[in-house]
Design a protein around this nucleic acid. Structure first.
Lengths: 149, 149
DNA sequence: CCCTATTCGGTTGTATACAATCAAATTTCA
DNA sequence: TGAAATTTGATTGTATACAACCGAATAGGG
């Protein structure tokens, strides 16, 4: 009954009746929930996302990172430069295509994987979701992601 | 089966197996989906959120806005100052408690409600969700919000 | 082999987010 | 009542986001 097909357009202009605001708020609350764990490793949430991809793939171009994270170069370039300064990764032009920049995981970045492994599990415990609820929600979000992509 | 109780901790360190990343990505994609509509009214998404609350309540303190939007003064103060410059709202100290700042909707801000009314409906059409799916997802997100609050 | 279109990062400028800190006003309670 | 604790915004500094634009490198057609 709180559906977009409702007749009163003003009702739609309330935070509670939208999908958008809870997504916006939840996204920031999750980031805040990660913060104490990430702070202990001295990294930010977007940096953690980049590392997750590099732990899985070792080396990716900026373009590939941007495609997977849905972030553009204006966001990634300075973020990756900060991570380069900490020796977590290296940045170099692809010799076979000088337009691309290869981002490669370095030992200091690899070393962060072990302590980071504990984070998702510790957080999941706080959510109070059953496995079924968790999976249903995850699937719904992925479905929406696919639609909006 | 992609549940946090899974045995392989490395599996949890993948974007696809988390709730957090789809929320983060979806939040930004929604903001981007709103952008063309909001751009036509020359406002940003967080400004639109503030206006939605003021359309409903006319006058709120910065603290109340922060509680409803889960944003702190470091974010709201400059945002509200920009909106004040456009005469969408006024900012003044509460005479009965000089610590509080009252944010009041002005005519120029009120005038934005009518054109904004169309936005949620236009966007909802793009989501390809049934009313039931929409409502289930909304309820799940609110439940999570309540847990993490 | 040229000329044009496209691709890919980088840069700039604006607008959030948010931790940390501060100052003023108010409340509390010894 | 009056000092201490609390509340409330504002400020500062850092880190995203992202639109708009730029330049170098590459690809593609004639």
């Amino acid at each position: 009954m709180n559906q977009p097909a409702a007749n009163d357009a003003n009702e739609l202009l309330k935070l509670d009746n939208q999908l958008c605001f809870p997504l916006y708020a939840l996204s920031r609350m999750f980031t805040k929930a990660y913060q104490p764990y990430l702070q202990a490793l001295d990294m930010t949430y977007p940096q953690y996302l980049v590392l997750m991809l590099l732990w899985e793939h070792q080396e990716l171009t900026v373009k590939e990172l941007g495609e997977k994270l849905l972030l553009d170069s204006g966001t990634l370039t300075p973020l990756l430069k900060r991570m380069e300064q900490r020796q977590w990764l290296s940045r170099r032009r692809d010799p076979s295509d000088e337009r691309s920049v290869l981002i490669k995981l370095l030992p200091a970045g690899q070393a962060l994987q072990a302590p980071a492994c504990q984070i998702p599990m510790q957080l999941a415990e706080k959510l109070l979701l059953t496995p079924t609820e968790f999976e249903n929600l995850r699937a719904q979000l992925h479905k929406l992601l696919a639609v909006l992509r």
